[in-house]
């Protein structure tokens, strides 16, 4: 029983950690976006305001995948163990 619960908790933690690998993608993407924005501002400093706004919007959208991963990781850490353990206990009963 304890071993089963331990496996559930460990796998949830491993899954959460694996899910956060998705953080790489938005990191690279936002880095590219900011680099291009810097280039654009360097080329046309008068467009600084609109470039910054557009860059922030793009970053926010690129961030979405990372945030999906974050939500799944949070679910795996805080919600899934309770749920799975309850299911297990009910099944044992």
């Amino acid at each position: 029983m304890e071993i089963a619960i331990g496996i559930i908790l460990g796998c949830c933690a491993l899954g959460a950690g694996a899910a956060m690998i998705a953080g790489i993608g938005p990191g690279i993407g936002e880095g590219n976006a900011v680099a291009s924005a810097c280039e654009a501002i360097g080329r046309q400093p008068e467009c600084k305001g609109s470039v910054t706004t557009t860059m922030l919007m793009g970053c926010a959208i690129a961030e979405t995948t990372g945030l999906y991963a974050l939500v799944i990781a949070i679910l795996l850490i805080f919600v899934a163990p309770n749920m799975l353990v309850n299911i297990l206990l009910n099944a044992v009963k």
Binding site: A60, E63, T64, L67, Y68, L70, V71, I74
Partner: peptide
């Protein structure tokens, strides 16, 4: 869904 999760995830990740 993406709008909700974006906002929620940003604030929550900050808190976490």
């Amino acid at each position: 869904i993406s709008m909700a999760f974006r906002h929620y995830g940003n604030v929550l990740s900050g808190a976490v």
